[in-house]
Structure formats: structure tokens, C-alpha cells
Amino acid sequence: MIEEPFASGNSIIHRIDPRFRVAVAILVSMEAALLKDFRAMAFALAGSLALVFLARLDLFHVLKRLFSLVRFLVFVWLLIPLTYEGQAVYLFGPLAWSREGFLLCAQISLKSLAILLFFMALVSTMGLSTLGKSLKALFVPGKLVHLLLMTYRYIFVIGQEYDRLETAIKIRGFSPTTTLHSYKTYAYLVAMLFVKASIRAERVHQAMILRGFRGRFYSLDTFTPSYRNWIFFIAMMGLFIGTLFLERGSVWPITIRF
């Protein structure tokens, strides 16, 4: 099921207003995604590492998450240089790995690592409901935010229902094989899950109507302002502008090339 290993914590980062963190994470990630200069990328990566360090994240979970990215990157490194045109640096029979391909892979790796680390340090350090509220505060439409929250809420219920159904078939001696019986059983299981989910959705809606729901959600949260938020914001702007400087050689004009 979905875990939030970083959500609760007491680091400097955790104490920053979530809205600031979300806004900054979006900004610096977008910047990182558009970078072309290796020095700028290294700078952004260093910045993201510093943030992860400041957030005092559990190293085990950090590595676990990085691992899923690394698995993907391995394929990138194997395949892209093979299919990318340019000066061949390595030949193996009819196969040629290109220099330009390798450079592109290096870029992809640095950027995606930086972005993942930014999000780990800044966004996954809050619970999903807080993320929802921050998005709402940042003018993401309320309906979209509630779709996100409700999905999150009921994924657990549906997950539990799946577990129950699976237990139900297991305790009656079912073990999956490649027979038609197995496929049929799994088809039933999935079908039941959909049916149950839709019945559940209906009843939840009924319960909401009984409590006076008329299509409008109200938020209870107010965020308390603090000077820390602005210090954080200024520091992050430093990172943003520093990266931009390395990328462009100057800060003005801030038109980002595509």
C-alpha cells in the first residue's frame, strides 16, 4: 500500500509552510528539467542533495526510492546510446553506441535524480492531505484536489477489499496456476473489486448527501506565516538563480530556451 515514510518529521524542511515547499519544488524541478549545461545540472543536484540532508530523511527509504529510478536509468543507458545518432564510441558487431547518446543519458540521469530528490525533500515530507491543501492554496481547482484526496482515501479501502477477497479464495485452497480455472478466478476477483468499488462510491456519496453536501468543499486550514518561510524561499531562489547563471552564463534575460 502507499507509504508516507517521510511525511512525519521535525526537520527544518518539515517546518516550512507546505505551500512554499510545493511551489518551490515545482519551480526548481521545471528548471532542472530544462537544463542543458552539465555544471548547472550538477549544481541543481547538489542543491537537491543538500535539501534531502536538511530534511533528515531516512537513508534506507531514500535509497529504496532511488533504486526504482536507477532500474529505469539502466535501461536508458543500455538503449539510448544504441539508437541515438552520432559519433560511435563503442562497437559490438553491428551495434554502435554513440557518444551523443551517452551524453544524453548522463543528462537524463542527473536531471531525473535531481528532480526526484527535490520532490523527496520538499513534497513527500508532507502528508497527502496537506499536499492537497497546498495545491488548493496554489490555485489548483478544488474539484481536482478532492479527486486526489478521495482517490487516496479509497485506494486503502479498495486495497483492503482486494486483500479480503484474495484471502477468501486462498483459504479455500486456491493457488494460482496457469489453468483456465485460475484465470477465471482472477477475472472474478477483479470484477468483484470493481462492483464493490462502485457500490462503495455510491454509499459514500449518499453519506455525504445526508450530511448536507451540495457539491462544495470547505477547507479548515489556515497556514501560519513565519519568517522561516521567507528565508527558505530566498535560499531557494538563490539555488534557482545560481543554476540559471551556470546554464546561461548570465541571469538576464530569463527566457528559458526549449
Binding site: L128, Y154, V157, R203, Y218, L220
Partner: peptide
């Protein structure tokens, strides 16, 4: 409701309990 999972849908308890009064 017979099944509480039908009734609770907000992420936090406070939001769920306050949902009715806000609607009122």
C-alpha cells in the same frame, strides 16, 4: 451507517467531523 468506511471520507478526523457543520 452500518459500515463506517462509508461514512468517513476526509483525510483527517477533524475535517470529517467538521464537514456537516460547514455544510450547514
Amino acid at each position: 451507517f452500518q459500515d463506517s468506511d462509508d461514512q468517513l471520507f476526509s483525510p483527517t478526523v477533524m475535517e470529517d467531523v467538521a464537514f456537516g457543520p460547514m455544510n450547514q
